[in-house]
Amino acid sequence: MLEVNNLSISFIQYEKGLKQKTIQVISDLNIKISKGEILAIVGSSGSGKSLLAHAILGILPKNALMSGTILYDGRELTTKRQKKLRGNEIAFIPQSVNFLDPLMKVGSQVRSSVSAGEKKEKQRKIFDRYSLDSRTDSLFPFQLSGGMARRVLVASAVVGGAKLIVADEPTPGLHPEVVNETLGHLRELANQGCAILLITHDIGTALNVADSIAVFYSGITIEISPVSDFSGKGESLRHPYTKALWNALPQNDFNPIDGFQPSHIEQHSGCPFNSRCTFKSSECVSKLPLIRDVRFGKVRCYHAT
């Protein structure tokens, strides 16, 4: 359904004064999602994961440069196609209701995303499906409660008949009930044949609903694993960072490794994780490993087995 090959995104920014510099935020990213699958992208803030969503939707800021290819339905996703498909076949679920028009009632706002057919009828049907009664139609975004806001955001994403849904941090700091409800909706959509890209910093959210998880580190995918590998002490995980992430969860060991994720400001050669890694060898310092298949998953590490 969606295939991203060797995607790199960099930004041109001003340093002090007049000099401009280019900083690479995403390097050499490869992912693939099929129909009915939920792929979660997990990475800490600043690792560049939101930019991936922006690249797929074609809403990168003007000072961003992109290379690599994005294939949708087997054909290249050009700017023109992005414009055509955005909002109907390719839908976006944002972080908060701030993405909705604050001065427009949610009912008519969702109706405006319907391109063809009986708008009112379609909107009502989708609202019914997410148990939003007719009073909700005439509410403004700020009047929605946390849970209702989530349902409206999901409804407005899928009302156009989406086949690919990009959800960028759809449950930020929400109460578990609301999180589970929203994730349940995503699962249901996937079961009906949607491909879903779920972008989050919270591995717990991802584990709840995704089929496989891609782990982002300093703008690089270091591992893609089926969800079932996240269990026990993380023995079946491939990359040492993924294992560390898993073991740092409060429900597991709550035992963090030292150090921090190098940001794009620190230019790294080799594997960005090498300074924190116990398996570090000379090749880890000199050259970034290529991503390779290991046990039904992918990993970017010389030492993974």
Binding site: F11, I12, Q13, Y14, P61, K62, N63
Partner: peptide, 8 residues
């Protein structure tokens, strides 16, 4: 001065 398009 505008942060929104300072880097364009």
């Amino acid at each position: 001065f505008d942060p929104h398009n300072a880097h364009e």
